[in-house]
């Protein structure tokens, strides 16, 4: 059987790659959170987002195999 790494779930990985590159989305002061400007608190969410999506992609694509 021919092996492959292909899985539709891999497309999920595009979200945590593309979103952090769109500076116009987060280059703003407000809304603030706990005194953090939007620019800072929003970007701090990128890493947890990357974990969430990559771990999901890992398990979802594994189940299929």
């Amino acid at each position: 059987m021919k092996r492959t790494d292909r899985s539709p779930w891999n497309a999920l990985l595009l979200i945590p790659i593309v979103l952090p590159l769109l500076t116009f989305v987060y280059n703003r002061e407000t809304p603030k959170l706990f005194g953090f400007p939007f620019f800072f608190w929003f970007q701090l969410l990128f890493a947890p987002l990357a974990v969430l999506v990559s771990v999901s992609a890992f398990y979802l694509s594994r189940k299929k195999a």
């Binding site: 790659i17 952090p20 990357a50």
Partner: peptide, 17 residues
């Protein structure tokens, strides 16, 4: 200088496969 944050967040999904 905060570019290190998106940088270190996207590096892993980028190389995952």
């Amino acid at each position: 200088g905060f570019y290190a944050i998106p940088y270190t967040a996207i590096e892993y999904p980028m190389v995952f496969l």
